[in-house]
Design a protein around this nucleic acid. Structure first.
Lengths: 156, 156
DNA sequence: GACTTCTTGGTCAGGGAAGGTCAAAACAGC
DNA sequence: GCTGTTTTGACCTTCCCTGACCAAGAAGTC
C-alpha cells in the first residue's frame, strides 16, 4: 500500500473539514471535491464507501439533481471509532431478542449507555417486535437496535 | 451553510413570512414572488407542490383571474400531549420514505425536533432502508421511524 | 345577458444539473 | 504472477427550472 493514495488525501481533507466544522455534519459537492483533487467524481464515492461508512462511525446522506449535495455525519467526534465497528459486528444482520437484551446489559455495564436509556430501548424493541411477522423478527431487531444505538451513542 | 437551490430559498422566504405573520395563513401573488426571485412563475408552483403539500402540514388554495391569489395555510402543531398519539397515527404500519421525510421536516418546522437530530434520523433511515428487501421497506420504515422518534422525543 | 379581452394562476413535458452504480483497467505489495 | 486496493469512464436516477400552452375569473362592450 502506498503511503498516501489519492483516496487517503481526500479522506484527510474531509476529516479536516469535519474538525473545523462546529456542526455534527458537513456538506460537500461531489463535483467540486473531484475538481479540487483532479479526479473523476465517482472517486469521491469510493472514498465515502471505504472510509466514511457506518462501521467507522460515519453516516452519509445525499441528494441528487440541481442543488444536490453529500452530507457526512461524524457520529463521534474524535476517538472510539472501534465502538461502531463493534456494534456492527455484534448486532450483525439478525439478532434474537435475548441477544439484544444481553447486549444492552453489557453496554450499561460498560458505561456506554445509561440504565434508563437502555430500558427505553428495550421497551421499544419488545413493543415493536411483538407486531412483526415471526419470520422477520430477528432481522428487524438487528436493524432497530443498531439504529437506536447509533442515535443514542452519538450524543455523548 | 446548507447548500441551497432556488426552490430552497423560496421555501425559506415563504416560511419566514408565515413565521412573522400572526395568522396561520398567508396570501401571495404568484407573479410578484416570481419577480422577486427572478424566475418563471411556474417555479412557484413547483415549490408549493414539493414543499408545501399536505404531507408537510400545509394546505394551499388559490384563485385565478383579476385579483387572483395563492393562500397558504400552515396546519398548527397539535398539543404536546397528543404528540405520541399523533406519531402513531401518522406513521402507521407502513410508510414510504418520502412520507417519512415529510414527517421529519414537519417536526422540525414545528420545533419538536432539532434540525441536526432530524437530519441524522433521516440519514440512518435511508441507510438502513437501502439494505432491506423491497417488499418490506415500508413496514421497516414505519417501525424504524417510530422507534427513533419516540426515543428522541422521550423526556421533552 | 352574451361576447370579448385582460389578468391571473395551473399543467406538463423537456433540458439541465447534480449524485449513484458497476465493472473493467491500473496499480501496489507480496 | 497473485491478490487486494484504487482509479476511471460509461451509463443511470433524481431533482430543479423553464417555456409553451391551458383554464378561470373579472371587467368592459354591445
Amino acid at each position: 500500500m502506498p503511503i498516501s493514495s489519492l483516496a487517503d488525501h481526500i479522506e484527510r481533507y474531509i476529516k479536516a473539514l469535519l474538525d473545523q466544522s462546529e456542526q455534527p455534519s458537513l456538506e460537500i459537492r461531489r463535483v467540486e471535491l473531484a475538481k479540487l483533487f483532479e479526479c473523476v467524481p465517482s472517486q469521491i464515492n469510493y472514498v465515502l464507501k471505504t472510509r466514511f461508512n457506518s462501521q467507522r462511525g460515519y453516516i452519509v446522506e445525499s441528494r441528487r439533481g440541481g442543488g444536490g449535495y453529500i452530507r457526512i455525519f461524524r457520529l463521534e467526534p474524535g476517538h472510539r471509532q472501534d465502538l461502531y465497528a463493534w456494534i456492527y459486528e455484534t448486532v450483525g444482520e439478525r439478532l434474537e431478542l435475548e441477544e439484544a437484551e444481553a447486549l444492552l446489559v453489557r453496554l450499561v455495564d460498560q458505561d456506554y449507555l445509561g440504565r434508563d436509556e437502555a430500558m427505553l430501548v428495550w421497551a421499544l424493541l419488545r413493543q415493536e417486535a411483538q407486531k412483526i411477522d415471526k419470520a422477520y423478527i430477528e432481522r428487524a431487531v438487528a436493524v432497530l437496535l443498531r439504529s437506536m444505538l447509533l442515535l443514542l451513542l452519538h450524543g455523548d
